[in-house]
Design a protein around this nucleic acid. Structure first.
Lengths: 203, 203
DNA sequence: TGCTTGTTGACACAGTCGTACCAGCAAGGA
DNA sequence: TCCTTGCTGGTACGACTGTGTCAACAAGCA
């Protein structure tokens, strides 16, 4: 059997991630207005032709970039949930969802920008909705585990409190991202802590 | 004294509002990608030259569009606060901030889109920050008036609870705008009602 | 009616967009 | 060693962007 030469071994998976993170930086620096194929290619140190090899269209690039955000967040949450001792671990999980450092701020920035960019019914919107549902599952899961561990009132309306917690986290994240990067963030963790305290106290 | 002819009387203020609302519709229909001077002019039934007479630059148009949103919301809130009997009126004020009908949904959509579009340090960002501060003042004011009226615990941390309410309202609004227009909205008012109930019950 | 003046909308311009193409190069197998 | 393969990145295209310009137009006053 004849096997032809396999020249120029490129780790496509790694390159896709590099390009997507370059897109993140462009997005965070200049907003959606600066998010062009050329800018991303320049940020990644590639020519537009090479970038097109990794992502045939711009939408594919955006979809992958958003999926990468969702995957990163999910991985971090999963890693934290392993050593779960409520309510300490649950608080840590929720704090992980807030953009309190540069890395998470970058991811949240991308999430919001691409969410704003996603046309209704498009492929990007589907990715956004999936990520949104994942977040809802996390917050509802936190409430449910608090109830299961006996840290909260058993008769507590878990779906409703999950949605409330989700809305609160979303609102805090939105406000954190939209404020100056150098501004303090303690108020957000304080608000989140108050909310969780009340969830506990009602147990 | 010679007074020359004053031809073609145009109500510039009314025209600015019409153009800005045309920009709203373009933004809601096609997102920031569709927000061009030409598209807005076509939506308003004008030529680009006529639009430029009302707004010299695109940024001026966006700034006015965002200011119009802020003014509309502020006017609605002010109208509701006149017949203020806590906590019924306060609940009404907060429900007014949520995008529960087509009109408010449109305004919130514009608010989010332009907030995502505003570069840090630009004129648009300043308008956004002002609107953000107005919202914070409303939510903190609601909490404070509940305390003043004796409906909540006097020792309640008003600034913190105001921020918490603000984050919750922002999160609910974000999620409502990002969900399908035909999707139900009862869950959001239910969550908001629960939150306000707890504010009362602690009195 | 004729004049004056603000309004209009078509056109032009330089720049950027997403996408397509292809000559040249680099690297592993025979 | 050469050959094959596919990756690379410069160039090109048409469409669209924001902005500038200006001849034609419409309407109130003398």
């Amino acid at each position: 059997m004849y096997i032809p030469g396999v020249p120029r071994l490129i780790d496509h998976a790694a390159r896709e991630v590099e390009v997507a993170q370059a897109a993140w930086r462009v997005l965070a620096r200049g907003g959606v207005a600066a998010l062009s194929v050329r800018n991303v290619a320049a940020e990644a140190g590639l020519a537009t032709g090479s970038l097109r090899r990794a992502f045939p269209t711009q939408e594919a690039l955006l979809v992958f970039s958003l999926e990468l955000v969702a995957r990163r967040v999910a991985d971090r949450v999963a890693a934290l949930e392993l050593d779960a001792e409520a309510p300490v671990a649950q608080t840590a999980v929720l704090r992980e969802l807030l953009p309190l450092d540069a890395e998470r701020r970058l991811e949240m920035d991308v999430f919001l920008h691409l969410g704003s960019l996603a046309p209704r019914g498009g492929a990007l919107r589907a990715v956004y909705d999936t990520a949104h549902a994942q977040l809802a599952a996390v917050t509802t899961g936190v409430v449910a585990s608090l109830v299961d561990a006996g840290w909260a009132r058993p008769g507590l309306d878990v779906p409703l409190e999950g949605r409330r917690l989700h809305a609160l986290v979303d609102g805090l994240a939105l406000q954190l991202v939209r404020q100056a990067e150098s501004a303090p963030t303690g108020w957000a963790t304080e608000v989140l802590g108050t909310h969780l305290d009340e969830l506990h106290r009602r147990g």
